[in-house]
Nucleic acid binder design. Structure first.
Lengths: 183, 183
DNA sequence: AACACATGTTAAGATAACATAACAAGAGAG
DNA sequence: CTCTCTTGTTATGTTATCTTAACATGTGTT
């Protein structure tokens, strides 16, 4: 019985994510290119993501195999329904998360977007749906929702909690507030 | 001018994260082992994370090089101050995120933990601090905070918004609520 | 002392992403 | 028609993680 606690193998769910950060961005790039310039070629994707043509070529061939991307006879790329659906999901998650970080938590726009970008492809559908509900509620304009939002925006830079831990930190046994030093 | 929009190279901040998902878990494993059984050897870490001894040996030698882990003459592992600090940060982020998902958003415990585990090492300090404040506020017991929480817990499974988009979805131009299909 | 088991290290191979660079193929310029 | 530029593909190398398997070492038992 060497194994005392078991993180077991669960922490590696991360790797087995069907949707990689990089895959998500290839799909979204195709999406955006088609919206913004009407079409997407491999070179356009490479430029938008600032990766080499070689990397793009390899990535796209996998995406074609997986049935997420196709191309027409002139090598114009497009997303299949499945690819399109995935891209949209990730875009929505990005919108939700950055909205939450920026407009609810009051984090700086750059940091909000950076964090959202890192997590956009990791949010489960369940959490995504719940987050939509939550944000709808907060932005419903109701009295106490406004109160919360204004409270968050004025109380910049909270403090660590003291000896009797606050209701948030109490179950953990120590204050969860990170030290204020920057990154 | 092939480059129309620029995600530029910003989306790859993800990769350049000093703290990898796997590094975070090696550090936390050492931490937990020391707490729970008083010491941590490589084999214990391997067992806890369900990875091979080989992988663990390689990972640990990198962590030693980076000055995050050391070992005593009997090969008992311990974290340096820096390693310990990193581990604690990630643990706190996990606690925060899972608390948010489960107790605020009302997501199932498994899903909450899985999502938190994927994102724990990605949350910026800025967002982490803000999230602490926000949760402190929500759990402060104040009148309208209770209202919000109870509202979230009864309105399970919200709906897509209709023609005049709700204040949340309006800036995006489409409803952000994902389809209710599982996964 | 000799063998075996537990633990740690090292080697070789896999996968996912990237880079660079060489090669291929089509399109327009002359 | 040939030359060149653009675009895409392929070959090779790198980094980070993981696996399996072979090797090394120490400790305890007989």
């Amino acid at each position: 019985m060497t194994q005392i606690t078991n993180d077991s193998t669960y922490w590696r769910a991360f790797d087995k994510n069907q949707l990689t950060h990089s895959v998500a961005h290839y799909l979204m790039a195709i999406n955006r290119l088609r919206e913004e310039q009407g079409y997407a070629r491999a070179i356009d994707v490479a430029n938008m993501l600032s990766v080499s043509r070689g990397a793009t070529s390899l990535a796209l061939s996998q995406l074609k195999e997986r049935g997420l991307v196709k191309e027409d006879p002139n090598r114009i790329l497009f997303l299949t329904d499945e690819g399109s659906h995935l891209a949209q999901t990730v875009e929505h998650n990005f919108a939700l998360l950055s909205r939450f970080f920026e407009d609810v938590l009051g984090v700086s726009p750059e940091s909000a977007r950076a964090d959202a970008c890192k997590m956009e492809h990791l949010l489960s559908k369940e959490s995504s749906r719940a987050l939509v509900q939550f944000l709808q509620l907060l932005f419903s304009g109701k009295h106490c929702m406004k109160e919360i939002l204004s409270e968050m925006h004025k109380t910049k830079g909270g403090d660590a909690c003291q000896k009797p831990l606050c209701p948030l930190c109490e179950p953990v046994g120590e204050c969860l507030m990170p030290p204020s030093a920057e990154h």
